[in-house]
């Protein structure tokens, strides 16, 4: 027996409500993050990730309240990403009951932010979230994988593997590797990308993007992922977290 592979549902939230693609008829309020979090916890989710896609600063305050309410009722780890710009933002999220915080574009804009967060709160709270794709511009990056922003629409100049290495060096305690190429295809995770990240990373790697069938999760784990994250397949009830774990167990993977 050893450390179990984690299965992590991800919820997009805006102004404290779950947005996008949730289809649970038996919920009183499918937009209520607390109710959904409890449902996923009951299915055996090992962690939950909230991605705050709130557009305005005014609405940002609602995320703290949402995290607090969830943490009061759901006793599994919570990660919150989206819109984190400073170590003070992290302090507020942790004080609200978040266990980990995902940082993405703010760290691309100003990499020392990673050091500031890790030095103040420890590497274990800091998840570097990367939206990665194969670059459309030949020779742009050595590995061919580039870091993107704006939901994958804009390519940066950053090689995804170099950025992951730098982020770990600066104190990231985990990598959330989201493949823009695979995202939404339901054809499975980008196994090459997962493998490359596992090879370079001394911290846990979460594979994200592309899950469509229960078999896909075991493939990501075989490629080296320490955890697997998915959103729509769970929200649309194409499978439960329990289904994924049953399949992993059948494949001989340690799960909780």
């Amino acid at each position: 027996m050893s450390l179990a592979v984690r299965v992590i549902p991800c919820l997009d939230v805006a102004a404290g409500r779950v947005v996008k693609g949730v289809n649970f008829e038996n919920l009183r309020d499918a937009g209520d993050p607390v109710e959904l979090a409890a449902l996923y916890a009951a299915q055996g989710a090992d962690e939950l990730t909230f991605l705050d896609v709130t557009a305005t600063v005014d609405d940002r305050a609602t995320v703290y309240e949402m995290v607090q309410k969830t943490a009061e009722q759901v006793f599994i780890p919570l990660t919150v990403g989206g819109g984190v710009r400073s170590a003070d933002d992290v302090a507020k999220l942790l004080a609200s009951g978040a266990d980990k915080v995902g940082v993405n574009s703010a760290a691309i804009a100003r990499p020392p932010l990673l050091n500031e967060i890790a030095d103040r709160f420890g590497a274990q709270v800091l998840v570097l979230s990367l939206d990665v794709k194969r670059t459309a511009v030949p020779g742009r990056t050595p590995s061919g994988f580039v870091v993107t922003t704006h939901g994958g629409r804009r390519e940066t100049e950053l090689d995804a593997l170099d950025w992951a290495r730098e982020a770990i060096e600066r104190g990231a305690g985990e990598l959330l590797v989201n493949s823009i190429d695979a995202d939404g295809t339901k054809d499975g995770f980008d196994l090459e990308l997962v493998g490359l990240m596992r090879e370079l990373s001394t911290v846990p790697v979460i594979a994200s993007g592309g899950a469509g069938k229960v078999e896909h999760f075991g493939q990501a784990i075989a490629a080296g992922a320490d955890a697997v994250l998915a959103a729509s397949v769970f929200h649309l009830r194409e499978m439960t977290v329990g289904d994924v774990k049953d399949e992993l167990r059948r494949e001989g993977v340690d799960v909780r």
Binding site: S2, L3, A4, V5, R6, D46, A123, Q124, G173, E174, S201, T202, V203, P204, D226, A227, R256
Partner: peptide, 8 residues
């Protein structure tokens, strides 16, 4: 792989 993160 460190941190040791998850369910053991």
């Amino acid at each position: 792989v460190v941190p040791h993160m998850g369910w053991n």
